[in-house]
Amino acid sequence: MAQPAPGDLSPVEAQLLRLADDEYVLAERYTEWQIFAPTPEADLALANIAQDEFGHARLWYDLLQDEFGYEEPDLLWERDPGNFVHSPLVELETPDGDWADTVVRSYLYDVAERLRLDALADSSFDPIADRVRKVQSEEGYHREHAQSWLDRLTGGGGDAHRRVQSAVDRLFPYALTLFAPTANEDEIVAAGVRTRALADVRADWLDEVVPYLESLDVVVPDPSAVSHPDEVGRDGSHTGDWAALHEEFTATYHELGFDDPATLRSENA
């Protein structure tokens, strides 16, 4: 089986790949906090969230394997980095010790994720609709976690508030790429794979995140004035941070040269 490439996919494949890649790459970034978070409780919470996101990625990658015949190496280990379609929001490297960056990214992503899942709950492709509920229940906890941290970081003013502001300035333009269409956007909606257009989901997202962040005295860039980053992810274009991350997480796979990636379903399912 060839590896999936953006622009050459059925609507269901295109939708699944966006979901899976977003979750997988975000989880890689979350795991960078393992043991490094500010307190043991924060560490535990983030490890838990990383675990959930890898789990969701596996769920969507499994569907691509079961329904479309791909194998794990096609989807992860041997896929060309230019054929990944995650939003660059999730690939950006976290500045050293910048917990605010992680909390802001998590919040921007988790709200979008909830809206996206809502738009998939009645998918015409049953296997997607079936899995949405499980993912939704966990994502709710992620969003609460991010919001609780945002409330606290901005509540005391000072340095922490400035860091949140600077993370919003940096990440907001990249967050808008979450709603950038793939080549299949019209077909995805026409076929009912997703029941709402990305433009509508984006409008709802703005209606939620902008007032919330402003209520924390955080200035949000005017979306119509934001010039999108050149890299929008959905077409396979990515920032330099992605190449480095991709190289890191595939290096051992290539070094070992095993016949197949190990599966542990009996223990881990």
């Binding site: 890898f54 789990g55 596996r58 997480f249 290096a251 796979y253 990636p261 190990a262 542990l264 881990n268």
Partner: peptide
């Protein structure tokens, strides 16, 4: 480094 998704989990 984990060389499979299950191992990574």
């Amino acid at each position: 480094m984990a060389p499979s998704l299950d191992r990574k989990l």
